[in-house]
């Protein structure tokens, strides 16, 4: 326990060492979270367009085959 406290104290520089690690963790985590969320949002928005295009392509290819879910 005493060792752990000593570790947390960082030789008296705790007020500088820990904020450095904390700010790095927060900024990089936010970067990852926002990047993933943006990708998901764009993928979701793009989906109806891609489906419509796919459907149109299927329609023009052949009228006899199944109209949807055909790749």
């Amino acid at each position: 326990m005493a060792e752990f406290n000593e570790f947390l104290e960082m030789g008296g520089y705790a007020a500088f060492v820990w904020p450095s690690y904390l700010v790095s963790a927060v900024v990089l985590t936010l970067l990852v979270v926002f990047s993933v969320r943006r990708l998901r949002r764009i993928e979701r928005d793009l989906k109806p367009f891609e489906e419509r295009r796919q459907a149109r392509r299927n329609r023009t290819r052949s009228s006899r085959t199944e109209p949807l879910n055909d790749t």
């Binding site: 030789g11 008296g12 520089y13 060492v17 450095s20 690690y21």
Partner: peptide, 9 residues
């Protein structure tokens, strides 16, 4: 001292 650890980030 321990502030060298700031270098790693």
């Amino acid at each position: 001292g321990e502030t060298v650890r700031i270098m790693f980030v």
